[in-house]
Design a protein around this nucleic acid. Structure first.
Length: 329
DNA sequence: TGTTGTTTAGATCGCT
DNA sequence: AGCGATCTAAACAACA
């Protein structure tokens, strides 16, 4: 896999995997979810390399969407007619990339299910031979979200939370598309606040307060300096692909975000301090206390709560015992 | 009919 | 060498 060098990406393949590119596109969107066609558009707009051989890479990209548990499919709302579903990032997948870098995944993201019997009983199209051994993905993911309402909103909220989790690497999404990311925060377009409000969370009136109080660990620094500090070659060519001069990153002194992520959405939230233990990385994950701990906390997000429907139907019960983990290699 | 989504299979590459 | 991640190709079904 080529690494960023001095030449432009315009004539060579970007060093990002399809998973990374897709994640970028989704993260870049205001709603933190995109239809397939918009994912195509995002990639083609930013990476001229992908303006050719579209059939090849788009097929691969679709394969990745279906295959990888880090992507969740969200049905369209009735008032949003169109082709295909929306795709979002699984709330837990923010910790998927090594040091937040989109150049490399540090571990595979998988959704594990305690009750594998449902895998066999609840299969949709039958797909003979497509047993659970190879692909836990499609049936184990969040395809059972309701086509409208809380599901999509919660996904957006969790995705937004995940996007602010702990990425600090110069190739993290904030640094790649940081200008827009930052703009969303500052322009009031952050879906998290509105969605949290929708879910009944207390939302500060001023978004600036949100940024400063909800993400006090978020600072602004020069991405080039960050890259240099990380020992990553940096060249001016990144500007062509939206890498900002100033990008968000996290200070080392802060490891936990103050985003309240209760197990289930409740009108009255417990004090953040009481939530802190739940926000820490589970011991089983054996992850260092990296700034990305919120990614694990996202497991307790509204999205995660949706994985446990209160009154599951036969189909919905496929996700009733679903939980996600980051599989360490 | 074209797009979207799923699945299978094989190849390549990097890491241990 | 073995394994996992990724890429590529292909077939097929469902849907707008």
């Amino acid at each position: 896999m080529p690494r960023p060098g001095k030449s432009s990406y315009s004539d060579q393949k970007p060093p990002y995997s399809y998973i990374s590119l897709t994640a970028m596109a989704i993260q870049h969107s205001a709603e933190k979810m995109l239809p397939l066609s918009d994912i195509y558009k995002f990639i083609m707009e930013r990476f001229p390399y992908y303006r050719e051989h579209t059939q090849r890479w788009q097929n691969s990209l679709r394969h990745n969407l279906s295959f990888n548990d880090c992507f969740i499919k969200i049905p369209r709302r009735p008032d949003q007619p169109g082709k295909g579903s929306f795709w979002a990032l699984h709330p837990d997948c923010g910790d998927m990339f090594e040091n937040g870098s989109f150049l490399r995944r540090r571990k595979r993201f998988k959704v594990l299910r305690a009750d594998h019997a449902h895998l066999h009983a609840g299969s949709t199209k039958g797909a003979p031979g497509a047993g659970p051994g190879g692909h836990l993905g499609s049936v184990g993911r969040l395809s059972q979200f309701p086509p409208y309402g809380l599901g999509s909103a919660a996904v957006a909220a969790a995705a937004a939370a995940a996007s602010t989790s702990g990425f600090k690497h110069p190739f993290a999404i904030e640094n790649i598309i940081g200008r827009d990311y930052k703009g969303v925060l500052q322009s009031g377009g952050l879906p998290l606040a509105s969605v949290m409000h929708h879910l009944g969370y207390p939302v500060p009136g001023q978004l600036g307060n949100v940024v400063s109080s909800v993400w006090p660990h978020v600072g602004v620094m020069d991405s080039v300096a960050a890259a240099a500090a990380a020992g990553v070659p940096v060249g001016p060519e990144y500007g062509a692909f939206g890498v900002p001069v100033k990008a968000l990153c996290h200070s080392a002194s802060q490891s936990l975000p103050a985003v309240p992520v209760p197990i289930k959405p409740t009108p009255a939230l417990p004090p953040v301090s009481s939530l802190q233990p739940a926000l820490t990385v589970p011991a089983a994950s054996q992850q260092p206390p990296a700034p990305s701990t919120v990614c694990s906390a996202a497991a307790a997000s509204p999205v995660a709560s949706l994985l446990e429907p209160t009154a599951p139907t036969a189909a919905e019960s496929k996700g009733s015992s679903l939980h996600s983990v980051l599989v360490h290699s």
